[in-house]
Design a protein around this nucleic acid. Structure first.
Length: 307
DNA sequence: GAAAGGGCCTGGGGGC
DNA sequence: TGCCCCCAGGCCCTTT
């Protein structure tokens, strides 16, 4: 499942293969893939065709390509990969993927960009860029000094910075986290508090911090919040490094958890297996319509848990 | 308006 | 072989 590291790997692929090129033709093959584009597929196609791709930017799990048109960068193509979305850079003659949802051909006649999404939980939209409430995308694009670097796509404006963002404010995060009346993992999955964290890296970071997912956020010490942030940064940085090996590939891969990084996971998907620290069998709980993996010894259930 | 949390989207795979 | 149910998890949307 694409979380921050996987999405950043894709962003880097786009920066290399797509930025600076002109869109000759855009094609939407599945209506559901553009459901977040209010004006419909035809309008989305119209807004992409003839534009130049100015940059490849990211905040949390959202990716976007600011579009240059008539001397302005006022809109962006936003992509969310959802659970199963992939962006592929392919030879125009390459056979169509079974779940191909959208395609872009470029004026140079070179490699095309494809959006493939088995479950269509992801999607694309062309949306206006608005001034960023917190001062910009934080270096997530290739052109931090450009006018558009201080903007965000409208549907992304409410998303918080991620823990790897140099402008992420640890103290402000700790303050907001401890004011919440909720459980720790619920809070970590709230993209308005901290972005880029999904089920997998939340579990991995909590294991590193030795904290249970149902721990009440209000009861956390400053040191424990620091441990959680350190855990998130550690696991995300390692995953990003592992994904880096695919940068040179034409295939802009997003199979992070099921592929190269899977071996490094300490608890996620390892129910019944030995904890890598204490050998206690890893436990799987149903939680928030999904699974949570913990080590019962390293991450004991807290008193006054918030489930 | 903010916060909290339930529910939904889809297709593959396993079990019967 | 075929049908049905379960599962994945991010975020939309309702409720408070």
């Amino acid at each position: 499942m694409p979380e921050l590291p996987e999405v950043e790997v894709v962003r880097r692929g786009l920066a290399r293969w797509v930025v600076g090129r002109g869109v000759a033709e855009a094609e939407v093959l599945h209506e559901r893939a553009v459901r977040r584009h209010a004006a419909g597929a035809a309008d989305a196609v119209l807004r992409m065709t003839g534009a130049d791709v100015a940059d490849a930017a990211r905040r949390g799990k959202y990716l976007w390509l600011p579009l240059h048109r008539e001397h302005r960068v006022a809109e962006a193509l936003v992509v969310h990969l959802g659970m199963s979305g992939q962006l592929l850079v392919e030879e125009p003659a390459a056979p169509e993927e079974k779940h191909l949802r959208a395609r872009w051909r470029f004026t140079d006649g070179g490699h095309e960009l494809r959006f493939v999404d088995q479950r269509t939980f992801g999607g694309i939209a062309v949306v206006p860029l608005v001034p960023a409430p917190d001062g910009g995308a934080g270096g997530a694009g290739e052109h931090p000094d450009a006018e558009w670097a201080r903007t965000l796509p409208a549907p992304v404006a409410h998303i918080a910075r991620d823990p790897l963002d140099p402008a992420f404010d640890d103290d402000a995060f700790a303050l907001r986290l401890r004011r919440r009346a909720t459980g720790l993992k619920r809070a970590l999955l709230d993209q308005t508090l901290v972005s880029g964290v999904g089920n997998i890296y939340a579990d991995e970071a909590l294991w590193r911090a030795g904290l249970h997912y149902a721990r009440r956020t209000a009861s956390l010490t400053r040191a424990q919040v620091a441990d959680v942030l350190a855990g998130l940064r550690e696991v995300m940085t390692a995953a990003l490094a592992a994904g880096g090996t695919s940068f040179d590939s034409l295939y802009v891969n997003v199979n992070g958890a099921s592929g190269y990084f899977e071996r490094s996971l300490a608890v996620y998907g390892r129910a019944g297996g030995p904890c890598r620290r204490c050998e206690e069998p890893v436990r799987r709980d149903a939680f928030m319509n999904r699974s949570s993996f913990t080590c019962p010894r390293c991450q004991p259930v807290p008193r006054n848990a918030h489930w």
